[in-house]
């Protein structure tokens, strides 16, 4: 039973990572933009959940409103700032997005202070399923797992079964050719960027009741997200899925076997996978 709980936790954490990494890998893959501020949107989502839940009294309202706000901010950032940097060197993008991290952190500090905040689990899901006399599993975590699976399924459907998905994949492999077949690349980029931001913020909103809401939470998860993107293969949603679950398991198992060394487990898995496939799981060398 203990191991079942760990497995459930690993999958839940992995799927949450996937929500973040899928946006990051798409933005990196299709536009070639390194977005260090991706983690900041996870934080933005979590703080929006905290603020909107207090304001409206319901996390159920906070989640959709938060997603819409994050999508709008994403669209604004893309058209106002990012679209000017596509043709620049990666160094400019790193500088810009690092600057954005600092701005988001400062804004957070001004608006919400530097304390750790909790977000209440909605009453509907605030109970646990007893597994044995002493062990039980919180329903909210199961809910998060289910929602992430749903979003992953939806994403898979859009990318692989719809025309807009074909255009996104075409744009990832050859931007110019896609444009010459009539695809409005600037519009497609803006949409993908905003959806990526909304996904990151969504991950933040639903994770808030589990992880609580605290300063620097975006940067912590950003590094893990980059690990997922690199070992999954840049630009690949399927690769990101496998990598997310692998990292989720590595992190959880690492904590169980040797808690004091658990931080190493994730990077050990990354090193092994990259030795086996230097281009990432989804991309053959």
């Amino acid at each position: 039973m203990f191991y079942l709980i760990q497995l459930l936790n690993a999958v839940q954490y992995g799927l949450l990572l996937f929500l973040l990494a899928s946006g990051l890998t798409l933005i990196f893959g299709i536009m070639g933009v390194i977005n260090l501020a991706h983690g900041s949107f996870y934080m933005v989502g979590a703080y929006l959940a905290y603020w909107l839940a207090k304001l409206t009294g319901s996390l159920w309202l906070a989640i959709p409103i938060g997603i819409v706000i994050a999508f709008a901010i994403g669209l604004l950032l893309e058209t106002a700032i990012f679209s000017r940097l596509y043709k620049r060197d990666h160094l400019y993008q790193v500088l810009l997005t690092f600057g954005l991290i600092l701005i988001f952190e400062e804004l957070r500090s001004i608006l919400f202070g530097d304390e750790v905040h909790g977000v209440a689990i909605p009453a509907l899901l605030d109970y646990s399923i007893p597994l044995t006399d002493t062990l039980s599993y919180p329903v909210y975590r199961l809910f998060v797992t289910a929602v992430c699976l749903g979003v992953a399924g939806l994403l898979y459907f859009v990318i692989h079964k719809t025309r807009i998905g074909m255009m996104i994949r075409a744009g990832t492999s050859n931007r110019e050719m896609a444009a010459s077949l009539g695809v409005n690349i600037p519009l497609l980029f803006a949409l993908v960027f905003a959806v990526g931001m909304a996904l990151a913020a969504f991950a933040g909103t639903i994770a808030a009741p589990i992880s609580s809401v605290f300063p620097g939470m975006g940067n912590q998860i950003l590094i893990i997200c980059f690990v997922v993107v690199v070992i999954g293969g840049i630009g690949s949603i399927n690769g990101a899925m496998i990598a997310s679950l692998a990292i989720g398991c590595a992190d959880t198992i690492g904590k169980v076997i040797a808690a004091e060394y658990s931080a190493i487990a994730v990077y050990l898995v990354m090193a092994l996978i990259l030795l086996w496939r230097p281009q990432g799981i989804a991309n053959k060398a």
């Binding site: 025309r163 074909m166 994949r169 075409a170 492999s173 050719m177 896609a178 077949l181 695809v183």
Partner: peptide
């Protein structure tokens, strides 16, 4: 300029305009 990551069918359908 064939899209290697799309199937033949998808290469054709994405262009239908």
């Amino acid at each position: 300029g064939v899209f290697p990551n799309l199937t033949v069918k998808e290469n054709l359908l994405m262009a239908a305009c």
